[in-house]
Nucleic acid binder design. Sequence first.
DNA 1: TATGAATGAGTGTTCATTCAT
DNA 2: AATGAATGAACACTCATTCAT
Lengths: 223, 223, 223, 223
Amino acid sequence: MKKTNTIRMTVDADPPLSRVERRKAKTNRRLLDVGRQLFSEKGIYWAKVEDITELADQGKGTFYKYFDSKEAIIRTLLEEGLDELSAKTEQAVRNASSDSKVVSEAIEARVDFFLEHPDYLLLFHQVRGMMQLKVDVAKELRDIYDAHLRRLAQLVKPAVGAGGDGTARDIATAIAAYTSGLLTYHILFEGKESVRRKRGYFLQAIQGSLRAMLKNGNGLVAI
Amino acid sequence: MKKTNTIRMTVDADPPLSRVERRKAKTNRRLLDVGRQLFSEKGIYWAKVEDITELADQGKGTFYKYFDSKEAIIRTLLEEGLDELSAKTEQAVRNASSDSKVVSEAIEARVDFFLEHPDYLLLFHQVRGMMQLKVDVAKELRDIYDAHLRRLAQLVKPAVGAGGDGTARDIATAIAAYTSGLLTYHILFEGKESVRRKRGYFLQAIQGSLRAMLKNGNGLVAI
Amino acid sequence: MKKTNTIRMTVDADPPLSRVERRKAKTNRRLLDVGRQLFSEKGIYWAKVEDITELADQGKGTFYKYFDSKEAIIRTLLEEGLDELSAKTEQAVRNASSDSKVVSEAIEARVDFFLEHPDYLLLFHQVRGMMQLKVDVAKELRDIYDAHLRRLAQLVKPAVGAGGDGTARDIATAIAAYTSGLLTYHILFEGKESVRRKRGYFLQAIQGSLRAMLKNGNGLVAI
Amino acid sequence: MKKTNTIRMTVDADPPLSRVERRKAKTNRRLLDVGRQLFSEKGIYWAKVEDITELADQGKGTFYKYFDSKEAIIRTLLEEGLDELSAKTEQAVRNASSDSKVVSEAIEARVDFFLEHPDYLLLFHQVRGMMQLKVDVAKELRDIYDAHLRRLAQLVKPAVGAGGDGTARDIATAIAAYTSGLLTYHILFEGKESVRRKRGYFLQAIQGSLRAMLKNGNGLVAI
DNA sequence: TATGAATGAGTGTTCATTCAT
DNA sequence: AATGAATGAACACTCATTCAT
């Protein structure tokens, strides 16, 4: 009885949306946007379904027409966010002038993504916490995140010499770890603005540590 | 009606504990230990007070004799953990052969602390998430964390040349951010063992990135 | 704003139905048929209005064009079913070769009706349960059922000697009780097929017990 | 996480119940009694958990300390009721002066049970309805009922000549069907008092019809 | 003092019904 | 006329916390 996300699927397609369809898409989007906002403001546990529907000016029943459960909207947001992050990363990598720039471009894209969407940073942080728990919901989330890392690994493969898949995966994990880990913490203690000002240093720091770690690991990667 | 943490206050003092006091201390410890375990296993939201008392083999009422609320035990655990982490860091810094080793020793101590107590890593991660939320509980937690960072800043001050307090604070934040952020993510996706094996690389990576960031920032710090 | 059951009212009348009317009649029938099926399959509480409209391939709004409420369709089904049951019984009684056969023919007709429409058996069973409840809906249902019993009492009157109305009513109640009570239970525990095979025994058993009860009661009835 | 019905299990045992245990037993009993009352008055769907706890003068949470769910209390009531019915039947059969009296004594016991506990009659009726539904809860209920019938079959076995198990089961089913089916219907349309007055006739009617059916079936049973 | 029975505010979810299109 | 998106009252169930014993 999974709700198919009709809206996003047809959005790319040609046939123009009817008035009703457009309205549904709008409702769906509104719920997602408000959900993202509240989840990052109050946290996924303290933000109640009713908070979302109220702020979205929608009946509570409407929420459940669009999402099977509170968990489902979180999952959808996670997927959406990671998709967008992947897209941004891919684009940056595609524009990279050389293989040796791939990793740095990827990092830059991700840092920019999070500076632009700090709410995603907070949402991801919470979800990452859930992933380690011995709780049912964890597995599904882990799968989603894992897919994202795999995609990232594919992307940075050109930068890996003979290291092969394992190294690519290591780098992907490291990139994700460094950017989110670092940013979350700094944003938390210094605020978004401070981080934005230091953007350049962050990029270098992240690259530097990646290089440090990988050099020690195998010395095969171009960064 | 705040429960004074009798135990920890007397633990440092000399006068021998009576049988009753020793028993109380034991109960208190047991609740804290079980709490830490369950909070990191199931998460602070999914671990119920009853789960804790049951595993600790204590009546539910007893829990509230020792802690004002579920939130209180989390706060206590946070304080305890950060205290221990501070202590470990202080000891390492004290043993540093030179000022230029201060930061690297601090990092090493922290990485080791987390490798030894991965449950704290997970607990801190969750708490860090709560801290950013527009929720009452957040402020208190933030204060606790803040105090910890201040203490850490004091510790690394010798390594800062003319940078002054701001720089020390920056370094402290960075150290905390790098270690936790990096470790959490890697442990999550690669497992504790993998991280333990790579310990050396991590240390270098963290130092490297610190250096990168600080060199760019002001070039004044000895690492 | 009670929906007049247009269809059943015109069905008996001569004037040919317009295309629109025929279509409406078809929709109405479809909803009733699907309703009967689902109510007996999943129960009147678990069968949702949406289940009905979906299986009937009709919009949910359409349902409410034809029935004021979920309760209303149940009431209509009850009336329809009892009407059909009455009709079958009447026909059987009319064909009875003698007054003394009236009751046995009636029973036989009813048993056959339920063997042919086990879904009605289950629906009636559920409705009978509701009838005893201190719930608003109960009274209306009770009235419908009561009317049915009165009609049945009229039918078996010829079989009653000097017993008068009271006895006729008693017999009617007994006939209804014996057939439904017995069949429901047996179908439940032995399955429809088993009951069909034993049809002859059931008929005798029902008659026998009726005779037993009425002989004791007054000895006046010809069965 | 099934609640063990501690109370009923220890009630038979020797060690005297502590004050607390007695109080728990009382609460448990009160909930069951009120539940039985409300389920038979308003129906298992219209009687809300809160109705029960309110009438029982208990907090809503208390209900869930004693029963895992609303369904669970219904199941418990069904088991309790059938157990008591079985016990009454067994006792009657034990007191039967001869094998040929077994069935009639059993019937008598059951009729008396239902005249004494009309609320059980109504509860069973509803549950019987659920049993036929394609709904998850149905299977468990069916199992409980089935066990009851098997027990009844064992009881009437002495009355069966060479018929064997199949016949015993048939008789058991028939006894259950006749008594409940007949009584439910009559009580519904004539009221408890009327049925009580006719007790004697009912007994004969039920026996008569059993005899009729079984004579036709195989002629082997002593009734 | 320690306990665990009792509590009830709060939450996610359902579903009959309405009404704008 | 037919539809199905939107609704919100209502419900089952949870769990941190209290308090009588």
